[in-house]
Design a protein around this nucleic acid. Structure first.
Lengths: 237, 237
DNA sequence: GAGTGGTCTAGACCACCCC
DNA sequence: GGGTGGTCTAGACCACTCG
């Protein structure tokens, strides 16, 4: 539908299947214009997508080249599974969820500020433990404004909040601000993550997520077993 | 010099000093064209920068709005201090460095692959502990091809490799692929990070960094004290 | 229907790399 | 000097939001 995305997907495919070899030069932008029948700016936008994904690099005066990336996950990551929740990430596993807590409360001042509400308003207060193929992965603490995300029920929590938000409520997720830390588990986390008798560090991800229209709809803290989870990013100047 | 960057900086300034208020609509793209005397595409590119930085959001059919961000660090982060090393990040502190190891070795197969070299080639092998205002922060394991980054000396390691690369060698850093994990310290790290008698998780950052021309020039693992370091990101759909 | 940002074009000139 | 990608323009049409 949208041309630059079509072109980007097409070039991406050629890189991943080896038609364009790592370290080698891509066809010139001018040539691609002819090949795809689009203007040069459209080609540039397509290539800029791939730069953002970490798949190619451009050298002014020289050309565009396939970046050598051995890390399969980085290539995956570029496939923009950005805002999928736990269920989607582990869709090839048997996903189980234990609901530890599910009620409605007033947010703290800090959380109210991050969600742009007052402490008089209400939020869902959800604590869940998540398992993949029987292995404990993460304990998630989630707060969401009940006004923005109505109709949450236990059945939804046992599956995927994200798919409920996107498919049922037809809301679109635009961005997320994340902070990562290394921490130690508390007693409850030790229990649900089954690390009573071992020393296991956790990777904590604090997140504020925003809808399409700029409204923050989720404040969450996820604490992952350090031996199960790693977090990858590509940053470009 | 470059117009869209000028415009982006200007708008950014107005957001940060409160001239454009959080949650409120920015002037229309058309109006900005007149105000800045540039074409609409240039305004769009400027605004897209600010979207990438997490400072504004755009709604097709409605307008462009200032994102409400309480977290000062996110706003800082957007000021693209992306590829500054330890010394720059802590420039307001008294930075000290202990060189634990500094020699030249053959890389392992894994590292050779990531740095696009063979196990026959040579890399610097550097281990350093870094301190800010006397507080231990991180132990860094760094490997760099001697061919790409010649002339590393102890005096450089005690200050900043990054400033040597950029200022002395005039090389430009283009991107970095990072993987974050939560881990426990080994004995040596416990010593240099002064956590002999406490349980302290570490935030590990594994990184492959690339130059302007696409060549990887650094493979490093940094293990930070969990109570000193957090890592922030903004991701946009 | 009026107004917003999103996409796209054809063409121009510039900064940079390499021969 | 010849060729690369980077920036920019003026203008067009489209998709979406909102009254």
């Amino acid at each position: 539908m949208i041309k630059y995305q079509e072109v980007a997907r097409n070039i991406r495919k050629k890189i991943l299947n080896g038609e364009y070899v790592a370290g080698k030069q891509l066809p010139l932008e001018k040539e691609m214009c002819v090949y795809y029948g689009v203007s040069r700016i459209t080609i540039k936008r397509a290539l800029d997508e791939l730069v953002k994904q970490g798949l190619v690099i451009k050298r002014r005066g020289s050309g565009t080249f396939v970046k050598s990336v051995e890390d399969e996950d980085i290539r995956e990551l570029s496939a923009l599974r950005q805002f999928t929740g736990f269920s989607e990430t582990y869709k090839n596993c048997k996903v189980e969820t234990t609901i530890i807590k599910f009620d409605i409360i007033h947010p703290s001042e800090e959380v109210a500020a991050k969600l742009q509400m007052t402490v008089e308003d209400f939020v869902y207060n959800i604590i869940r433990a998540r398992y993949a193929d029987g292995r404990p992965i993460v304990v998630e603490y989630t707060q969401m404004p009940i006004g923005l995300i109505p109709g949450i029920k236990r059945a939804i929590l046992e599956k995927s909040i994200y798919s409920y938000i996107q498919k049922e409520l037809q809301l679109k997720i635009q961005s997320a601000h994340r902070t990562l830390r290394a921490v130690m588990p508390n007693e409850m986390e030790q229990e649900y993550l089954r690390i009573k008798d071992t020393v296991m560090p956790l990777l904590e991800v604090e997140q504020v997520a925003f809808l399409d229209d700029g409204r923050p709809f989720e404040y969450s803290i996820s604490r992952h077993r350090g031996d199960e989870i790693e977090f990858k990013t590509v940053s470009i100047k």
